[in-house]
Nucleic acid binder design. Structure first.
Lengths: 150, 150
DNA sequence: TAAAATACCATGATATACCATAATTAATGT
DNA sequence: ACATTAATTATGGTATATCATGGTATTTTA
């Protein structure tokens, strides 16, 4: 999954990248989106992944624990299923768009089993930050034979 | 899933969100509501879940404890079935509305297998509280696959 | 029989599904 | 390797269906 940039129209409609659609179709599941907890972006995944997470929460905490209550509220309260129409678009809600500061353009970033949707400028900054972070943590690579320029 | 905000009229009528109705219809079951034990809100679920809930209470608290009896009594004493009319509305009782401090607007908050109905302002505060709380406890979450920092 | 609760009807708003065109990517042949 | 064609994908616009909500009629019950 690479990063693709798509337009968002006045109604919040965006084309879900074809690659993503293919996966969703194959699993014949549905997309779920929610506000990321860690960044100003929308996060999405396939529905069953969310259910697994819920199951994990239920198993890892006491049924009546405050934490479990909080987590289920946060996750299921925020998340929503998004079905795409015959042309492959979903309509993002105002809440999600605001959280990600998206107006007319959005960047889809693959993240393994999930993906994120960013405001292009914010993503550019974030990507730069990540690059810097990686370089700092792995100075070894710069001298080695493997990841170099050649 | 999701949070939707609906109006409550003078008679206590509220539209049960369409998604919820779809589920109830599919399971051809009915909605049960009761005063939440942990927060100033109304809690609801599909009828058969309430029985499972009772079982979970028995498992998660000491079998001989008074607490368990109290919990089951509280919930079952309070719970009531709510059928929705042809337009998809239920009428909430005065008791429930007062407990949740709801007058003319209500927020439905998805909670996985259950849902909650809140006074909008109270929910806003609660959501803020939860987000803050979760951020504090973040390390625990990072082991999961969906919703972590990454 | 009066009051309350419930079921039904009608309308406006909103969101969804569909169609048509533009742009991009992939494929083909020269 | 390039140009041309074909196929897929993205986007703008419009029609349709669904949903929420105010109001009214009918049933229940006290």
């Amino acid at each position: 999954m690479d990063t693709v940039i798509n337009k968002v129209d006045a109604k919040g409609r965006v084309s879900l990248p074809a690659d993503y659609r293919a996966i969703v179709k194959e699993l014949n599941s549905e997309i779920v989106c929610y506000r990321s907890l860690s960044a100003p972006c929308i996060e999405g995944c396939v529905e069953d992944l969310l259910e697994k997470l819920a199951a994990e929460i239920e198993n890892s905490t006491d049924f009546f624990s405050q934490t479990q209550d909080d987590l289920t509220n946060l996750i299921f309260g925020d998340a929503r299923r998004f079905t795409f129409d015959s042309t492959g678009r979903i309509v993002l809600t105002e809440k999600l768009l605001q959280h990600a500061e998206i107006t007319d353009t959005a960047v889809f970033v693959g993240k393994g089993r999930k993906f994120q949707i960013w405001n292009p400028q914010n993503w550019a900054k974030e990507e730069a930050r990540i690059r810097a972070e990686v370089m700092k943590k792995r100075p070894v690579l710069n001298t080695g034979k493997c990841g170099g320029t050649n």
